[in-house]
Amino acid sequence: MYSYSIVQWFFFFYFYCFVGWCIESAYVSIKTRQLTNRGFMRGPFLPLYGSGAIMMLVVSMPFQDNIFLVYVAGCVGATILEYVTGVTMEALFKVRYWDYSRNKFNFQGHICLGTSLAWGLLTILMTEVVHVPVERFGLGIPDMVLKGVTYVLSVLIFADFALSFKAAIDLRDVLVKMEQVKSEMVHIQKRLDVIIALANQEVENRRAVLAESMSMAREEWTERMSVHIDDIKAGIEKKMEQMKAGSSAWEESHMDGIHIQEELQNLKTKYAINLADRKRLGRLKDFFQRGLVCANPGMTSVKFREALEELKRRTMGKDEPEDEE
């Protein structure tokens, strides 16, 4: 049984947070051929690894004499921890920092059978191999030194976590605003399409009416050339009245055209403003927000997928120059 003081538990937690960060960052850096500071925090600590290690030690305590039960406890405990952490982070930040949706036998993309089975093996490895020398090392540190180191690490890690948490919340707000701007832009685009379609239809209708009127006028003029001058005079007066009526209708139509032009201009202005806002939101300047995006290139979002992908492209400098115009 593990009988550690609170300070010792914290020290082991920080130790495994650091070791997990080293392993994860080295793996991703080699895979991407680029130095990568992995994780939720900016410092060299991954709390999920520390939590996982402590969880493995705790759940295996009652079964240290039975390796099979240690395996089962590790599978169950780690899977619960992974699921709860994944669901909580997505609920808070609207993004997933890992996603098993493409793996077989996954549940909601937060956990999958293959990973759960691997957690059991890691629990055996942790309790039987890894933690033995780590325990010896931790317990060999003088009590005063251990307390001093642990207290300093606690302050630094807490501050880092608080800033990273705030950055993640701010990043969530950016995604929400980007999605709102996109919805407004789609609404404006649809309204523009409707106005343009109506304007084109109106032009076609006017052309048809004008052509028909000119044809009827020619026919009527030809017929009246042979009648009495009084009839011609009466016809001219009638035409004058029609022209006056037509003039009023034209003026009314002209005013409608002016209103349409004004609405078009307003919609174009709103669209330009929304486009500028979306680009501005996509340029992260905060150190912790940029760090979150760069450190987790594989993170996804079910609700804000398009906005998140745009944010990642801009933050990592993968946008083409013309995209910035």
Rank of each mutant, 00 (worst) to 15 (best):
Y4A: 08
W9I: 14
W21N: 00
S25H: 07
Y27W: 07
V28F: 05
S29P: 08
S29N: 05
I30Q: 03
T32K: 11
L35F: 15
G39S: 07
G39Y: 06
G43L: 13
G43K: 02
P44R: 01
L46E: 00
G50F: 01
M56Y: 03
M56G: 09
M56F: 04
S60G: 12
S60L: 04
P62L: 06
P62I: 08
Q64S: 14
N66K: 11
F68L: 15
L69T: 07
G74L: 05
I80F: 13
E82F: 10
E82D: 10
Y83A: 06
V95K: 00
R96F: 05
W98T: 10
N103C: 12
I111Y: 02
I111N: 00
C112A: 10
L113M: 11
G114A: 13
S116Y: 03
W119K: 05
W119D: 01
L125I: 12
V130S: 02
F137Y: 12
F137V: 11
G140N: 09
P142M: 06
V145D: 01
G148M: 06
Y151E: 04
V152N: 03
D160C: 12
F161C: 12
A168M: 12
A168L: 10
D170Y: 06
V176Y: 01
E179G: 07
V181L: 07
V181C: 11
E184W: 01
I188C: 09
Q189S: 15
K190D: 10
K190M: 10
D193N: 12
I196C: 06
N200F: 06
N205K: 15
R207Y: 02
L210G: 11
A211E: 13
E223W: 07
R224I: 13
S226E: 02
K233Q: 10
A234R: 07
G235W: 02
G235P: 04
E241R: 14
G246P: 01
E252H: 05
H254A: 10
M255P: 00
H259D: 13
Q261A: 13
E263R: 15
L264D: 03
L267M: 11
A272I: 05
L275K: 15
R283L: 09
K285R: 05
F287N: 10
F288N: 12
C294I: 13
G298I: 05
M299T: 07
T300V: 08
K303P: 03
E309L: 10
K312Y: 03
R314A: 12
G317L: 06
G317E: 03
E322K: 14
E322D: 09
